[in-house]
Design a protein around this nucleic acid. Sequence first.
DNA 1: TTCATTTTGTACCGTTCAGTAGAAATAATT
DNA 2: AATTATTTCTACTGAACGGTACAAAATGAA
Lengths: 216, 216
Amino acid sequence: MVDKTNPRGRGRPRKFDADVVLDEVINAFWELGYEAADTETLAKRTGLTKPSLYNAFGSKEDLFVAAINRYRQTRSKSSFDALMQADTPQEGIRDYFLNLAENVAGEGHPSGCLIMSVALPTRDRLQKVAAIFDKMPKESHARLTEYFDGQIGLGNLPQGFKSADAIALFQDLGAAMIMQARAGAPLEVLKNKAIRNTQLVMFEGGARSESDISSR
Amino acid sequence: MVDKTNPRGRGRPRKFDADVVLDEVINAFWELGYEAADTETLAKRTGLTKPSLYNAFGSKEDLFVAAINRYRQTRSKSSFDALMQADTPQEGIRDYFLNLAENVAGEGHPSGCLIMSVALPTRDRLQKVAAIFDKMPKESHARLTEYFDGQIGLGNLPQGFKSADAIALFQDLGAAMIMQARAGAPLEVLKNKAIRNTQLVMFEGGARSESDISSR
DNA sequence: TTCATTTTGTACCGTTCAGTAGAAATAATT
DNA sequence: AATTATTTCTACTGAACGGTACAAAATGAA
């Protein structure tokens, strides 16, 4: 419904890669916001013409949704990967927040988060965006619960660790980092918060002694 | 520059109260966002005609700025007042967060915060909004520092209390509440966070024992 | 070769939006 | 009563925006 790539190989071939185009579309929406990123600007920045954009993605809203989905599959995913790939929860949480800091205040892209800083404000007006927000919280909460409870099972967190409490604060502090980045907080400040936030999340879960924390 | 109320009492008198109009303008921007709250809608909701709006407030951007300023003088101020008026810092912080919860997720008004959820996304496009954001952080940080340090002086917080650390977390957790309200978190959830956040802020400042906290 | 299919580029359309012209209305001042 | 200052209302304007018609171009299939 969104990416109508020539199914039977027939017809004039495309001159562009849809993912490359989407990456630039992400940047435009991220930097300018939904309304201010007008279709003419999107066409100029991607190097395509308006009809090509419309032919490939449908409407402006569809294009926005496609950009959001790609953003989640690349940027958002990289933060979660950082969490999962670490050896210990303590390091995982720290790496998540550090990765998030780069994603919301690093160089080479606008500040803030496409989802929370740009898409969320359009939720009430754009049906298809609202649909994304209806699913997202449950999905990310489920993934975090699975991770934290799994770490308890592995003995990397104490048995009494309160995953739900830790996750709630984890998400709150992440949201705060996003908003402060959008408000202009520099990368270094956010990286320091990443360290502080890690300690707070562990504390909130109930891992308050050294032996609770460095479990391997 | 914004509110040209008949200076010499001459001419046809206004049929409206500028503050009443601004309160409805606040609601419209708050609910719809800057772009989606078009001047026609603003006129209908306030009961004025477009030329009356323009005559009284200038441009759409000027009107937005006037709404932001009134919002700060009413809603934002009420949260700070709750902080200041409490007997102890612990109660003050709690009352601040509880008041904030009402302001961002209570009934009778849109969710989120006009400043952070609506004005912030327009910062890059609207010069006069940017000017507000350039001043605001310093102002609120100064007020909070004065409050916390004052409470140390009064003996309501321990001598070693780290105001700067507490303030940083205080603001982070407030920002998180705002964003979660905008994302749909119900009032009860935020009220619970208010309690948790209070404990975290006290802890982060270094008031970790009972005697540190209930100092009167 | 011819046909069907798809992309591309130019030029355009209808709508919506911020803002206003101009005249009538309403008051204080002289 | 005449004048000056201001607000109000109807109707409008010019620009910007999302989206598209149409024909040419480029490929695979028949």
